[in-house]
């Protein structure tokens, strides 16, 4: 028999579960269901046709590709930033800590305009890149840069607390047992932060796929080249093609959900593996 209930110290399982489900339904499930209903107005043929135009395919490739690469880059640099913040004391640390959250707080539109201005050919950064032949603004690279900016805090904020809680004694023990620094990092530190890293990656990735405001200012938005999926959706909405817009949105949702689920499964497996040893 399926055991739904586990006795804990504190009562209130039914009540809290009920509230949680109700809240999730109202905030997440019902709007999503509405999207599915709207998309089902299209005939299957039309649905398929809308999604497989070269333009839509190119947009999907760009959105998922750039979000993946940006999340990957943030995985490394986010870990680095989190490490520095968790492990060292230095002058200006509080400021640096606060800076990390800035991409959360800044309206993405402002971020987009700022990045576009910085990386424009006459901008502070762009003018140094231009002679090297590197063009950021109005290219796919620009999309990547915007998503880097947006995604960073997700990784840092999920990994940092785990690193802070990490027992230094574990590392000392590893060292006293003869592990070198690399082994300590790979065998002791990395396994502990891996679930947090994966979560951070997943969050950054999911956010990147759906990001609109910051990207449209730094990308040239040319169909088939630098057009992202959310822009395609906005374009359809402007034509009052609600069903077509939601069809794309639904596919985006499903793909993101599948990836998040995959990452969660992976995480669950790795934590179970650790629970065993």
């Amino acid at each position: 028999m399926l055991r739904l209930r586990q006795r804990g110290v504190l009562p209130g399982f039914r009540l809290t579960l009920g509230c949680a489900l109700l809240y999730l339904s109202l905030i997440v499930l019902i709007p999503l269901a509405a999207a599915f209903v709207k998309a089902s107005e299209l005939s299957p043929w039309q649905f398929w046709h809308d999604l497989t135009t070269p333009r839509a395919l190119a947009a999907f490739r760009l959105s998922f590709g750039a979000a993946f690469l940006a999340a990957l880059a943030n995985l490394f640099f986010g870990l680095l930033v989190a490490w520095v913040l968790a492990r060292y004391q230095f002058w200006g640390k509080r400021v640096m800590d606060a800076l990390v959250d800035l991409p959360f707080a800044l309206p993405t539109l402002v971020a987009g305009i700022t990045l576009a201005t910085l990386f424009a050919q006459n901008g502070w950064i762009g003018r140094w890149l231009a002679p090297l032949g590197i063009k950021v603004v109005y290219t796919q690279l620009g999309v990547f840069v915007a998503l880097l900016f947006i995604g960073l805090p997700f990784v840092v904020r999920t990994v940092q607390p785990v690193l802070e809680d990490l027992d230094l004694e574990l590392e000392e023990a590893a060292a006293s047992l003869g592990a070198n620094r690399r082994q300590t990092f790979r065998r002791v530190i990395l396994p502990s932060v891996r679930p947090a890293l994966l979560t951070g990656f997943a969050l950054a990735f999911a956010r990147g796929v759906g990001e609109y405001g910051s990207v449209i200012f730094i990308s040239s938005n040319l169909p088939g080249k630098t057009e992202i999926v959310p822009l395609l959706i906005v374009t359809k909405l402007e034509q009052f093609d609600y069903a077509g817009a939601t069809a794309i949105a639904v596919v985006m949702l499903l793909a993101s959900f599948a990836l998040l689920l995959l990452i969660n499964l992976f995480q669950w497996r790795s934590s179970r593996y650790h629970a065993r040893i």
């Binding site: 603004v137 109005y138 449209i216 938005n221």
Partner: peptide, 19 residues
Amino acid sequence: PVLDSGARGSTITFVQHEV
């Protein structure tokens, strides 16, 4: 080279980014 989503966006691109 750039298709902004609105008229103001294009004006910014042309005037401020000098594109």
